[in-house]
Amino acid sequence: MAAARMIFWGAFWAFLLDQASKYLVIHWMGLSRRLSIDVLPPLLNFRYGENTGINFGLFGDGTESARWILIALSLAICLALVLWIGRGRDKGALMQVSAGLVIGGALGNVADRLLYGYVLDFLNMSCCGLNNPYVFNLADVFIFAGAAGLILFEGRIKKPA
């Protein structure tokens, strides 16, 4: 039961922060109208993006069937993570929170696909003379951080002799 609680709270906060950031930047700050807001150039800029695919726009043909396939795939991954982490007695709190971050981020992008038909992206970061043309959102950050945590913290719990 404690595992489910850790996964839930990780997912809850990731989802909430993702959706709140999208509302704040895209709707409240008007990025959808302005298309571009320089925050701390070139390190941090807001650039409006509509992603019908996965990372970097891959598989983004924009068809309705692709949209529903990506929604189903995201939900299947969320369910698989809950089952994998929830059943494992040797999964520590960091693994549980990491799974929650992946789930919350995935559900944030699913919510976008259901509401808009695409994922809202707005973060753009460049550095050191390199101009990054891609945009992403906090859900992507949570998915990446959670996946890294699942890899890094796997097997960290010591099993009794």
Rank of each mutant, 00 (worst) to 15 (best):
A2K: 15
R5I: 15
R5D: 14
R5Q: 15
I7D: 04
F8E: 06
F12T: 12
L16F: 15
S21H: 08
K22M: 10
K22A: 10
V25K: 02
I26S: 05
H27V: 14
M29W: 14
M29Y: 12
M29V: 06
S32W: 14
R33A: 11
L35R: 14
D38I: 00
D38P: 07
D38Y: 03
V39I: 15
L40P: 00
P41Y: 00
P42M: 08
L44C: 01
N45I: 02
F46H: 03
R47C: 14
G49C: 05
T52V: 05
T52W: 09
G53P: 01
I54Q: 05
I54V: 13
F59Y: 06
F59T: 01
F59P: 00
E64P: 10
S65R: 15
I69E: 02
I71F: 05
A76K: 08
A76Y: 08
C78S: 14
L79P: 05
V82K: 12
L83A: 13
I85C: 13
G86N: 03
R87H: 09
G88D: 15
K91M: 13
L94D: 04
L94Q: 06
Q96A: 15
A99T: 13
A99W: 13
V102S: 02
I103Y: 07
G104L: 09
G104W: 10
A106L: 04
A106K: 03
A106R: 02
A106W: 02
L107I: 06
N109G: 04
N109T: 10
V110S: 06
D112K: 12
R113S: 07
Y116W: 13
Y116H: 13
V119S: 03
V119A: 01
F122P: 00
L123D: 11
L123V: 14
N124V: 04
M125Q: 12
C128M: 09
C128E: 06
C128A: 12
G129D: 05
N131A: 08
V135E: 05
V135C: 08
F136E: 02
N137Y: 01
A139W: 06
D140F: 00
F142K: 03
A148S: 03
L150P: 00
L152P: 04
F153A: 02
E154M: 06
G155F: 02
I157Q: 09
K158L: 08
K158M: 04
P160K: 02
A161E: 08
